[in-house]
Amino acid sequence: MDMAQLGDLHLHYRIDGPADGAPVVFANSLGTDLRLWDPILPHLPQGLRILRFDKRGHGLSDCPAGPYSMGALVRDAERVMEQTGFSDAIFVGLSIGGMIAQGLAAKRPDLVRAAVLSNTGAKIGTREMWGERIAAVEAGGLGAVVDATMQRWFSAPFHDTPAFPGWRNMFLRTPATGWTGCAAAIAGTDFYSATAGLRLPVLGIAGTEDGSTPVDLVRETTDLVPGSRFEIIRGAGHLPCVEAPEAYARILTDFLKAQGHV
């Protein structure tokens, strides 16, 4: 178990792969921890050096009082990369992780050489929508929103698989303060101008059954960056790395190869 000490905040992280491997960083979604990426790892090329971390309020990381800002989440990722020696990396972010990817790519081009914006947007939802969800969780815990979230996250067939209860439990066991803190960060973020100013290789990934960040939102965000690529995974929802890990890994591997990163 590795913990990065960022002032008074401790973030849990994990590194896999050889010390001299090509660096890839993964940032997970709201209500999940770094295990989100477990399904795709066996399908990625050998020799990558992979950094995953639990953002504040999630997994084994500290859960400070909220609300959080997107700037703080970006800074957390920045400092974890600095402490672990990751630079010139390809940064893969899903949902809020994709927002962190956008913010970090704009702030620290020395750390991020290319970005994968998976199931995300430059702006996701509205302040009012997130305010309602935050109020529901503050009143009734994550159980108040879990069923609606699972409907948005996963395709109907996946709900009947043996894997589904584990992801539902992961969501429910996220600290409510961590969830609402990060939800507030999403509510306050609009990266349209910042992302439109990016000049680095970008890949967008969307799932046809995603009820949280629909295909058109991901495509619109990806298209902000000149020369970007966009891929759709059919039949998958908000977490295609879980529902379609082989397809996801194949798309990601092709992008890594195109950047000379394999």
Rank of each mutant, 00 (worst) to 15 (best):
M3L: 14
A4Q: 10
L9E: 11
H10K: 10
H12V: 01
Y13H: 14
R14C: 04
I15K: 08
G17H: 03
A19Y: 03
D20F: 01
D20A: 11
G21W: 02
G21M: 08
A22R: 14
V25N: 03
A27G: 10
L30S: 12
G31Y: 12
T32F: 13
L34F: 15
D38R: 10
L44S: 12
P45Y: 15
R49F: 13
R49L: 11
L51H: 02
F53T: 03
D54F: 13
G57S: 10
G57D: 07
G59N: 07
L60M: 12
S61N: 09
P64G: 10
M70Y: 08
G71T: 13
G71R: 13
R75Q: 14
D76A: 08
D76K: 08
E78A: 10
R79P: 00
R79F: 00
R79V: 09
V80N: 07
F86G: 01
F86Q: 03
A89F: 09
I90S: 08
V92C: 15
S95L: 05
M99H: 01
I100K: 03
I100T: 02
A101I: 04
G103W: 08
L104W: 04
K107N: 03
K107W: 13
R108P: 11
D110T: 03
D110Q: 14
V112K: 04
A115W: 03
V116R: 07
L117G: 04
T120V: 02
G121R: 01
A122I: 02
A122R: 01
K123A: 14
K123Q: 15
R127D: 08
R127A: 14
M129V: 05
W130Q: 11
G131C: 05
A135P: 03
A136L: 11
A136I: 00
V137A: 04
E138Y: 04
A139Q: 15
A139L: 11
G140T: 13
G141S: 05
V146C: 13
A148P: 07
T149I: 07
M150Q: 14
F154V: 03
S155E: 05
P157R: 06
T161S: 15
F164P: 06
W167Y: 15
R168L: 11
M170R: 14
F171T: 08
R173W: 06
W179V: 00
C182Y: 06
C182Q: 05
I186D: 05
I186F: 07
T189D: 04
F191D: 02
Y192F: 06
S193D: 15
A194C: 00
T195A: 12
V202Q: 02
L203P: 06
I205E: 02
G207P: 01
T208E: 09
E209D: 11
D210P: 02
D210V: 00
D210N: 08
S212M: 04
T213N: 13
V215C: 07
V215A: 00
V218N: 01
V225F: 04
P226Y: 11
G227P: 14
S228P: 06
E231Y: 09
I233A: 06
R234Y: 13
R234N: 13
A236T: 08
P240N: 13
P240D: 12
P240A: 09
A244Y: 04
A249E: 10
A249T: 00
F255E: 07
F255S: 05
F255T: 05
K257V: 13
